[in-house]
Amino acid sequence: MSSYLFVPGNNPGMVQSAHVFDAKGVIFDLEDAVSVQDKDSAKDLLKAYLETAAFDNVYIRVNDIYDLGKNEIEEFNNFDISGYVIPKANTKVMSLVEKYTNKSLIPIIETPEAVLTMKEIGEFDNVTGMLLGGEDLATNIDVVRTLDDIELLYARHKLVMVCAYLGIDSIDTPFTDTDNDESLEESVKYSKMIGMSARSSIHPNQIPIINEIYKPTLEEIEFATKVVEAAKINDSGVFSVDGKMVDLPVIIRAKNILKKAKAYEKN
C-alpha cells in the first residue's frame, strides 16, 4: 500500500476506525487538526487508545518542536508506535528531535528552507521517509494551490530524487479538495508517474483511490512476469519481450513491480 492517512487526534469516531481503510500508515494528528484548547485531550485520547490497540505503521504528528512537540515526543516514546511526523522540519529541528527519540521519523518539507536542505534533513539517522506539506509550502512561497500542483513542481521532483538517493520513502502532499475524486485521481497518477513512493491524505475516502492507482496493473504484472522468466533463460544481457528491448534496468524494474504486487496480495 502506498497511502498515509492523517486522522484528527481528538475525534474518537475517527480514531477508532482509522485502521479499517487499508492505509499503509496512519498518522494521528496532534497539530493542525486539533484546536489549541484540546491539545491536552487529544494526547490523552491517543494514549488511552494506544493502550488498547496495537497496529503496525502508526505515527503521531506532533506539534512544533519548540512548543508542545518536545513533550509530546517524550510522552509517546513508551507507546508501541512506529514513529513521529515532524512539522516545520529543518536541520536544527531534526538535530533536536534526534535527541528525544529513537523511533522512526518522517519530517515534513513545508518551508523553502526545507526544500533547499532536503538532503541534509533526510540524512538524519532515523528518517524513514519525507512528506511534502504542500499547503504550508504554498503559503510560504506566497502562491495559491492549483489542482495540478504546478507551483509545487520543483519541490515534488526534488523530494523524489533526494529520497531515492537516500533510500527512504517519498510521501506526496495531501490532496485537500475532498469532493473532487477525478482531480485526485489525476494528481495521484502524477505522483506515481514521477516516482513518489506514497501519497498522504486527509480523508479516508481518498485511500482506496490512492491504493488502486499505486497497485501494479494486471498488464504491468504480466509483462514483468514475462521479463523475469525470460531473464532466467537469457543470461546474455539484452533480449526482447513482446517486441520491447529488455536490459538490466528493465529487469530490475520488473522485479520491483512483482515485489509490489506481492505486497498487495493478502494484507
Binding site: 476506525s17 479499517v20 481503510f21 480523508h203 479516508p204 475516502n205 482506496p208
Partner: peptide, 11 residues
C-alpha cells in the same frame, strides 16, 4: 452517504 466507513463497506 459520504460516511467513510459506509463507503468502504459499499466498495
Amino acid at each position: 452517504t459520504r460516511n467513510p466507513v459506509s463507503l468502504k463497506i459499499a466498495r
